[in-house]
Structure formats: structure tokens, C-alpha cells
Design a binder for these strands. Structure first.
Length: 528
RNA sequence: GCCAGAGUAGCUCAGGGGUAGAGCAGAGGACUCAUAAGCCUUUGGUCGGGGGUUCAAAUCCCUCCUCUGGCACCA
């Protein structure tokens, strides 16, 4: 029994269509999850849905449905989306689930009993569309509000607030004192410029207390406050708790102890909290880097080890927007190109952190150059030669390319441990290039014409075949089904899902490979 | 407005006082095992403008311009 590598994605707001941004974040998390499993760690990968709130309530009403029934329908869509992306998540949380809500209420009770909340009257402007309170600062000189807020109403109402100010100093210190949490030098908040933003935010002004309730009269689709039935919980407070409500439901001893839960029995074999990585978008950094750590501290739980912040995608250099039709539909791309190509491009094109730019031409170019003509062609030419010249039977081991393969394996593992997924793919790409160069230099097709060169041909064919096998193991976290196809073509009936197999020489003499077939079929674009 | 960061080859970016780099795109070549794939060679740049420090500046300083991000919301 040992602690699992626990990683999460943001939970998506159910009331919308899955788009490229959602897909990207989930793929990044999935690659990390698969990489860690491949490296031999026990992993728990969580994703899910945020279902409460005004907009969902309103949308359900507009559709003539009860919120729960409405969410059930949409949840099916989102779960199918996760499957389509080939996510390897271990659980899928929905905030409307009882297992989640009981934890939210237990936390609210605990924090309230400990005096973290107070009730106060709020008077001011509110945007139902954005579910947010507005201040005088949000007002334009003429007194109006930006149209993005929709209809703005003036409210006078009581609400519960979470004392934050007393937490400001220790949080600053925590962020500053946790710059390096492992040998790769990962920050508590990464990339470092996001960390600096949070520090600047915390240092520049006093935190305003967080409003954690909404009056039942205005919103009933939420988790009721256990100590005041006239209110439900603010959606953000509700949503963040998913990161520990699922561990609680799974029986994580640390979380259950903090909640003093008597209804659930700890399971000794499930140690999840603290999370190793929260993968989030830059838009929700403040919730994860400020409100969430403070909430955890108040509950008495340790903080997550890392918040990994990714950027946003543009399409053709422009912000994606439904109204202009300037969007990338992940499902359409996957249907046309396959899920592996989609996963590959997303991770290869955009490093975790900066914003990226999706272009269809760029996608097609990478598919052709790196997948079809790169790894795909190397595999195909290697196996076809082994099939033609040696009837598909692996010759005796030979280690000509072993040193370079070992280096690529070592570097790739280091990159994966540091969540440097783009760098890992780039490094793997150098082994593909090396394989193709090796074919040109060793000219096996010429050796095959000269019977006196048979021994040399054996050597070359072994090096090529073994390189392909190593590549399958390295690529598995990124493009699992393609990696498995490589193994199948090599005649190996297991999955290349263990990095410990990325060791030169595991392919045995006398083994017979399977049938070669184009891994990423070339797509000749109709010339327009 | 304020605070960061960035402006280097057609594109994406690395370099960070001492002869300008990579990948892709473009051009040329030899080959033929392969998904007409791959490999080799190669053309591109007064390193945003101006001023300064220095024997020497893409690199340090000043100034201006432009872009991006954060300061208020959103995967």
C-alpha cells in the first residue's frame, strides 16, 4: 500500500458543448496519467462535471426539464466525449451526485462550526448571466455595465462569507517556500509566470472575503447549506470540493479523518490526498491558487503538490468564437483523423502554459510529416524489409542503435516526470529521425541483394525492429492505440504500457512479427 | 493606466558581451526498402526603431514603438 499519484482536471460546466479547450486539458492530464502508470506508479485520474448553478437551472427550465434530468442527459454527452478522447480516468465525478454533496455539506458544517463563516448583508449589482456580483469598478462612466454581463440587477440580500484575510500571509509564504517540490524542480504553481501572477495578486491588496452562498429564493439548483436551509452553496465552492469528495467516496483515510466521517469506512489501500497535480486552465487560476488552498487549510488538509496551468487555443490566430464559426470541433477532427492524431497534435503543437494556435494546415502538416511519413513510415519500411528478407523472423540481437535509444528513453522519462510533454515528443521524434537515417546509411535493401552480406543485414534488421518497439513504449502515453498497433504489428500480444519495457534487447531472436500495415495512412488532400 | 513578458530567417522559436542558430517551409542532389515516404546538401536575417557604455552589443544601459498576459470575468 502506498500513496497513489492523484491528478485531476478542472470539472467542466455541464451547460455547454465540449470544445477544443476542454479536450486539450483532458488529453494533457491523460498523457500525464498514462505516463505515470507506465513509469510504474499507481495512479488515480479524476475528471468530471460541474452541474450546479443558475445557468443550468435556467437552461433546464427553458427545456421544460428538471435540472437533474437535464444534467443526466448532458452528462451522457460529456462521458461519451471522455471516451472519445480515450481518457483513462479512474472516476468521473458529477457535483449533483449524493457522494459529492454529502462531502460539501460536511465541509460547510465543519468550517461553520470553526467560525470561518459570517453572515452579512450584501447590497449591490448582480449579473445573473455571469453568476457574479459586480462592483462600482465594473461600471462604465455612464453607469451602465458591459453587455457581457447581460441584464444587471440590483440586489439587497443576506449571504454567508468566508474569512480570507487571515490566510493571506501564510499562503504567500507557502507559494514562496515551495518553489521546488521534486528533482525536476516543479513549482507549486507552474509555469513560473503564473506563480508570479498569483504572488503579485496576493501581495498587492487585501483579499476580499469570499461569498459562499446564494439565497434559495434566487437559486435552488445547488447544495443546501447544512446550517441554513434558506441558502445553497456558491457553485465554485461546490465545484472545488470535488477534488476531495471523490477521495472521500473512495475511502481515502486522510480525507475521511479530516471530515470526521462516521458513515464511511476508510480503505487502507486507497491513499489519494494530497493531489499531485491539478491540471487547470489559466482562467481559473485564482480559484485554485488562492481560494482552494485556503479552504483546504481551514479544513485541516494538506495542500496539493502542484497546480499546472495551461493556456488557451486560438484558431488561425483568432479567438475561437461560436458566433463567428471560428471553432475547432474535436469530435469532427477525431472522426476524420483519428483520436491518436488529435492527441498527438494537441500535445506536440502546444507546450503546457502558453497560448497556442490551431490551424488545419498545421495539423495536416504534422500528421503527414511526423505521423505518416515519420513514425508510420519507419515502422512500415522496417517491418516490410524484415518480412521480405527474413520471413518476418527476428534475427539475433545487435546493439548498434542501443546507445542512442537509451539516451532518448532516459531523456523522455525525465521529461515525463517533469510534465514536459511537448519536449518528450520532440525527443522521441529524434529517435524516429535516427531510425530513418540508419536505413539510408546501412542500406539493408542493398545488403539483401548480396548473399555474402547476410550477417550484416541481420544486424540492421534487428536494430530497426527493436527501435520501432522502443518507440511504441515511448509513445504509448500520448497515442495509446497507435502504440498498441505497433506492438500488434511486431507480433507482440501485450500492450506497450510499461516504460520498463523500453530497454534495448527485449525483442527475442526467432520471434515472428505480425502483418505490416500503414499506421497513419497518408491523406492526400484533394487539391483545391 | 499600472505590473510583467516578448519583438532574432517566410513561419514557430532557441541563444543572452567576442565570426548569427534549430525545426518547418523554399531550392538542389544521390538513392529506391517504404504510406511517391525517407536521406544528403543548401538559399534566407544591418537580431523592433533611435541613442549610449565598451577594443567589441542580438546580448548591458536609456528612450520610443508594437504585441501578449495579469491587475475585473471566462476550458
Amino acid at each position: 500500500m502506498r500513496k497513489r499519484f492523484y491528478l485531476t482536471t478542472a470539472i467542466d460546466y455541464v451547460n455547454g458543448e465540449p470544445h477544443l479547450g476542454h479536450a486539450y486539458e483532458k488529453i494533457v492530464a491523460d498523457v500525464i496519467a498514462r505516463a505515470r502508470r507506465s513509469l510504474g506508479e499507481e495512479v488515480f485520474f479524476l475528471t468530471g462535471l460541474d452541474e450546479h448553478g443558475q445557468k443550468v437551472q435556467q437552461a433546464a427550465l427553458d427545456n421544460g426539464k428538471k435540472p437533474q434530468a437535464y444534467c443526466d442527459e448532458l452528462a451522457a454527452v460529456w462521458k461519451a466525449f471522455a471516451k472519445k478522447l480515450n481518457l483513462s480516468n479512474d472516476d468521473f465525478v458529477r457535483t449533483s451526485e449524493p457522494r459529492h454533496q454529502t462531502v460539501v455539506q460536511a465541509i460547510l458544517s465543519k468550517l461553520n462550526a470553526a467560525g470561518h463563516f459570517y453572515k452579512a448583508q450584501y447590497r449591490g449589482f448582480y449579473s445573473p448571466k455571469e453568476e457574479t456580483f459586480l462592483t462600482e469598478k465594473d461600471r462604465r462612466p455612464d453607469g451602465s455595465f458591459d453587455s457581457s454581463y447581460g441584464q444587471v440587477v440590483e440586489l439587497v440580500e443576506d449571504n454567508y462569507y468566508f474569512h480570507l484575510r487571515e490566510h493571506q500571509q501564510w499562503l504567500i509564504e507557502h507559494i514562496e517556500s515551495h518553489p521546488k517540490i521534486d528533482p525536476q524542480g516543479r513549482e507549486f504553481i507552474e509555469p513560473i509566470y503564473r506563480r508570479n501572477e498569483v504572488l503579485a495578486f496576493l501581495k498587492n491588496k487585501a483579499l476580499e472575503d469570499l461569498c459562499i452562498s446564494r439565497p434559495l429564493a434566487r437559486l435552488n439548483w445547488g447544495v443546501p447549506l447544512p446550517f441554513d436551509e434558506q441558502f445553497v452553496t456558491y457553485v465554485w465552492f461546490d465545484a472545488l470540493v470535488n477534488y476531495i469528495s471523490v477521495p472521500a467516496a473512495q475511502g481515502d483515510p486522510a480525507v475521511l479523518a479530516a471530515l470526521k466521517s462516521e458513515s464511511r469506512k476508510p480503505k487502507a489501500d486507497i491513499e489519494l490526498w494530497p493531489a499531485d497535480v491539478h491540471v487547470i486552465g489559466k482562467d481559473i487560476l485564482k480559484f485554485h491558487a488562492v481560494y482552494w488552498p485556503i479552504t483546504l487549510r481551514a479544513i485541516g488538509l494538506p495542500l496539493p503538490k502542484q497546480i499546472l496551468v495551461h493556456g488557451w487555443w486560438q484558431k488561425d490566430g483568432q479567438k475561437m468564437s461560436k458566433s463567428t464559426g471560428n471553432v475547432v470541433d474535436p469530435l469532427a477532427v477525431i472522426d476524420e483523423w483519428g483520436v491518436d492524431a488529435f492527441r498527438y497534435y494537441a500535445v506536440r503543437e502546444l507546450d503546457i502554459g502558453p497560448d497556442g494556435n490551431w490551424t488545419d494546415a498545421g495539423f495536416a502538416a504534422r500528421y503527414k510529416a511526423e505521423l505518416a511519413d515519420g513514425i508510420g513510415n519507419l515502422l512500415n519500411r522496417s517491418l516490410k524489409m524484415l518480412q521480405s528478407y527474413r520471413a518476418g523472423v527476428v534475427p539475433p540481437r545487435h546493439d548498434e542503435l542501443a546507445p542512442q535509444a537509451d539516451q532518448v528513453v532516459n531523456d523522455t522519462i525525465a521529461h515525463l516526470r517533469g510534465n514536459q510533454l511537448q519536449a518528450a515528443l520532440q525527443r522521441i521524434g529524434t529517435l524516429v529521425t535516427r531510425g530513418n537515417q540508419y536505413v539510408e546509411q546501412s542500406v539493408p535493401f542493398k545488403l539483401a541483394k548480396d548473399p555474402s552480406k547476410a550477417a550484416r543485414l541481420d544486424q540492421v534488421l534487428y536494430n530497426l525492429t527493436e527501435t520501432c518497439r522502443i518507440l511504441a513504449v515511448l509513445l504509448w502515453p500520448f497515442i495509446p492505440t497507435a502504440a498498441e498497433k505497433i506492438y500488434a504489428q511486431l507480433g507482440l500480444d501485450v500492450s506497450p504500457d510499461k516504460m520498463s519495457e523500453a530497454v534495448w534487447g527485449r525483442l527475442n531472436v526467432g520471434h515472428t512479427i505480425g502483418e505490416p500495415a500503414p499506421l497513419f495512412p497518408r491523406k492526400d488532400q484533394p487539391s483545391k
